[in-house]
Write a protein that binds this DNA or RNA. Structure first.
Lengths: 124, 124
DNA sequence: AATTAAATACGACAATTGTAGTTAAACTAC
DNA sequence: GTAGTTTAACTACAATTGTCGTATTTAATT
């Protein structure tokens, strides 16, 4: 099942774009990523090729212009990334990590509600 | 000020031990780290040397056996790490990231209380 | 058909990362 | 003081990472 590695930083950026809109071509992704920072088409392509090999994305090669989609679930990847961080520096407590991270934030009322709801669920 | 880089994964592990107890010698840290996973003395030493050069830790070389202490604040590093993660894949919302990460956890009552308290503070 | 554009494959490369070996100096214990 | 032990400096090395360039193929334009 999950011998799929976690995405690297640069890969995560692209994967994030895919999660937002799938499927997508290299050009799509390059355009969208360029909106955030300067990066060449080939760089995006290479990362997509690496992610394909790694099993992080799938591609449809039936057309000359390949179409990509994520092969991993957003929730799972995010949870694993978070855990890796929590494990190495927060004594494994994700709640601690969450609290620490929240510490300096000013959440929107919606976000607060979501959090509140989560807590209520846990209490039952 | 902060051209100090973020610690790598392995460095964070060691830094975490330092934050728990400072100052510490390489041997101290090696022993404590070994409790978590197998790693050689030299590996710990090398990381400490790299962290020293990077400005992440300071060392007292007045004795033959050097003594290390963190040169960066835990809160700051953790917040930066968290933000880096949030920025690349969570649309910059740390609350979202926190929620996502909490998703599958079973927190202790104490942790729940802490979270609840944080929420209450935010509401005011 | 000839030229240009678009797309992928493949290779390259420097920097970082994790890991550890070798060397040499400085203590420690006989 | 001779032999082992600790410690740190330095070197090494393969894997990963982020970044592109070049070559090649295929499609579009004129």
């Amino acid at each position: 099942m999950s011998k799929i590695p976690l995405p690297s930083e640069a890969q995560l950026e692209i994967l994030d774009l895919l999660w937002q809109q799938q499927p997508a071509t290299v050009q799509d992704l390059h355009e969208r990523l360029t909106a955030r920072r300067q990066v060449s088409y080939n760089t995006v392509l290479t990362q997509l090729q690496r992610m394909t090999k790694a099993g992080l994305v799938k591609r449809d090669t039936s057309q000359r212009t390949h179409a990509y989609r994520a092969a991993v679930k957003r929730e799972q990847v995010e949870r694993r990334l978070f855990h890796r961080l929590a494990d190495t520096a927060f004594g494994g407590s994700t709640v601690n990590l969450a609290l620490r991270a929240l510490g300096s934030e000013k959440p929107t009322p919606e976000e607060l509600d979501e959090l509140q709801q989560w807590i209520n669920e846990q209490k039952q």
